[in-house]
Design a protein around this nucleic acid. Structure first.
Lengths: 230, 230
DNA sequence: CACTTTCGAGAGCAGTGCTCTTGACGGCGC
DNA sequence: GCGCCGTCAAGAGCACTGCTCTCGAAAGTG
């Protein structure tokens, strides 16, 4: 038993070191991650990496899942810092800013998660549960608001039928307790947050907006108004 | 003179053919465009491409500029289809849907323009004027609304100082005639349009929303409310 | 006709992901 | 305690990439 676990432990450390170096390369060079360069940095030959990851895509998947969890951690930490749990507005803004801060410190990883998909690469199912953590954190704010009586269901009147059906289907196993119409508003907020961060990170704001943080904050504040957070 | 122009014409046709084949490859394989593959498809040797484009990046730049113009054309055509020029809401929605439609038919080109930046590649200055065409089309709707007295300046009160300054600086040479506060609202609309299209195209909606067009339309409609288009 | 410019072909460099084979080391059962 | 066997790193090799350089042929210019 201890013998096997010694091997298993060495293997796990190897995998972590590979991922760590790969993340460094990702940050330095962007999405076209080179297995050979990672191997060089580890003092190994490229083929040795294949003992630990069956392909470059599997390495990417591991990095993506890690990335979603890192973002989820950052987002949940940002939310938790707001001591007044009834301050829905403050919590929402805290989450948005946490997303942006994380994206700015890990631009390559953010691009890996939310940027153009890698051509030959299809994200496997296992990434979706990790990907849902941030939207889940946002929906928790809405749930708390409903439970505390601060928010009320806007009613399905403002939703087109098919959208209502989609949201109803997804609500039960991802965002339990949020009425569809409110969920649609939340989606708008999440989309706007993602859009603003991507705009900034992907260079669309270059030469236009210099006060990035103030601009982002203003955009998010206008959005919480639209969502209806008091 | 005709001799020189024969050569020049042949050269221009060569360049166009290279770009056309490159676009086909882009659509098929995604962002990692291979010069050698393009050369193969043209029945040439890879080094011959360098007679027409000094590097792969220059080819990418040409494709990007072309892409921005194609999107600009689609957007302007979408706007022009709305016969009632005073129907600001209808025009705004038409432009947003034109962006989405173009993105869905040219996903790889959209990703090239608005997705994660290509690692070693920095977009040269010349791309920005082409890139400004779509925001410019949106701002024209606001300008028309102001001129017709349908819209009024919401006033700078809702804008933080630094953002106001940035928008004032950029307004004069890009979006002449739009007050800063209205410009910020327009930016929100553009960001939301971009965010929603990217969300859909980059796979973040997979398994969540199936009624894509209705969802997009609903998102944009909520946004025109926020902008204040009647 | 002679001269110059333009162009395509080919070889070559340094790099890539990935496969397969080879040899060594270490933990396990007998 | 010894042999076995699984795990691992190394190396060669395949097909590919962007890019440079040289060379010969063709085309346009005086």
């Amino acid at each position: 038993m201890p013998a096997a676990s010694i091997r298993a432990r060495a293997r796990a450390e190897m995998i972590n070191e590979i991922k760590a170096i790969a993340r460094r390369h990702l940050a330095a060079e962007g999405a076209n991650l080179s297995l050979r360069a990672v191997a060089r940095d580890m003092g190994m030959v490229s083929s040795a990496i294949y003992r630990y990851f069956p392909s470059r895509d599997e390495l990417l998947t591991a990095l993506i899942v890690d990335g979603y969890h890192a973002l989820g951690d950052a987002v949940e930490a940002g939310d938790a810092e707001v001591t007044d749990r009834a301050d829905l507005r403050g919590r929402w803004l805290a989450v948005c800013h946490a997303v942006r801060r994380w994206a700015l410190t890990q631009p390559a990883e953010y691009a890996l998660l939310f940027g153009s998909p890698v051509p030959g690469y299809a994200a496997p199912q296992e990434t979706t549960v990790a990907a849902a953590r941030t939207p889940a954190a946002l929906s928790r704010i809405l749930v708390d608001g409903l439970a505390a009586g601060i928010l009320t269901d806007p009613g399905p009147a403002e939703l087109p039928g098919p959208v209502h059906a989609d949201l109803a289907a997804v609500r039960d196993h991802l965002f339990a307790g949020v009425p569809e119409a409110l969920l649609a508003r939340g989606a708008a907020g999440w989309i706007h947050c993602f859009g603003a961060v991507s705009f900034e990170l992907f260079g669309q704001l270059n030469g236009v907006i210099e006060a990035r943080e103030e601009f982002f904050d203003h955009q998010m504040r206008r959005m919480v108004d639209l969502i209806g957070l008091p």
